[in-house]
Design a protein around this nucleic acid. Structure first.
Lengths: 144, 144
DNA sequence: CAAGATATTGACGTTAACGTTAACGTAATA
DNA sequence: TATTACGTTAACGTTAACGTCAATATCTTG
């Protein structure tokens, strides 16, 4: 059906549920679940879901958030935040402060990531040293 | 009891379960759960748990991993990896390849993080522009 | 020595994020 | 036209990561 889409409506970019499932390597069940949780709002062709580019982007964002340990509820909050970014001053200020909190969280995680990465680097180097030292065996200075 | 510890065995660094719970702002239940899952191995004073510095470090590592979306099982795997870093060549090579895979995962997440952070920055700037433009109200170029 | 405070071990409860049938409709295809 | 592929809703099942009692033991402190 992806083929037919290309011929019929290339520019409109409509995706079936399996299109997206294949692209992002998740199950259709997961996608339906994300819709249940309010992350996606596909159109309908009869009972069949038709996902727009916007849905695709949202799915991408959602999966990214998930990889970073955010819950679907948190992701949904973010989406709502962006969507209902009212144009009046108090709303904008509220949005800004929420964004700041979110940024702080993300930067905390970036710190976490950097620490973990440097730990891994350390261990990798240890390994390489041991491998370089003894061709077959080696006794490391096993510290507690 | 923390006070008594300081007097009795300052250098040995022994922590009660509530010491750690308070320090890391988690419940004692969570700590016991981590022990059940093999992340911690406290000594015992009768039936009471006594956590060493090693346990404390592990807890810190575990919580860091959690913030980044790793499951307790994955964290445990990592710990086991580091612990059983056998000194023979095939084991070292296996360890290295696992570390590489892990590094790849972490770097993927760092990429995710950077993308999310730049998205947030973008939105923050949008907000600031709107706030600067209209002191009370403003009509943004609401794009779909 | 009674009352907290702090510890323990069960064991059942809860929530999130889907997995897994089941029962069914529709559409292209051999 | 029967099969195959893809879609639907509904509903129960599962796993992880703890929460939440309950019953009990051990200090220590007024």
């Amino acid at each position: 059906m992806g083929q037919i889409n290309i011929l019929q409506r290339t520019m409109t970019s409509v995706y079936t549920i399996t299109d997206l499932a294949k692209e992002f390597e998740i199950t259709t069940r997961a996608i339906r679940h994300y819709e249940d949780e309010g992350l996606l709002n596909p159109q309908r062709d009869g009972s069949n879901r038709l996902f727009s580019n916007r849905d695709r982007v949202r799915l991408k964002l959602a999966l990214r958030g998930k990889r970073l340990g955010f819950s679907l509820a948190e992701i949904r909050e973010l989406f709502d935040l962006y969507d209902n970014a009212g144009d009046e001053r108090p709303q904008l200020e509220a949005l800004l402060s929420k964004l700041e909190r979110h940024r702080a969280q993300l930067e905390q995680r970036r710190e976490d990531l950097n620490v973990m990465l440097s730990e891994i680097t350390f261990f990798e180097n240890q390994c390489r040293k041991l491998l370089a030292a003894g061709p077959n065996k080696a006794k490391p200075g096993a510290s507690q």
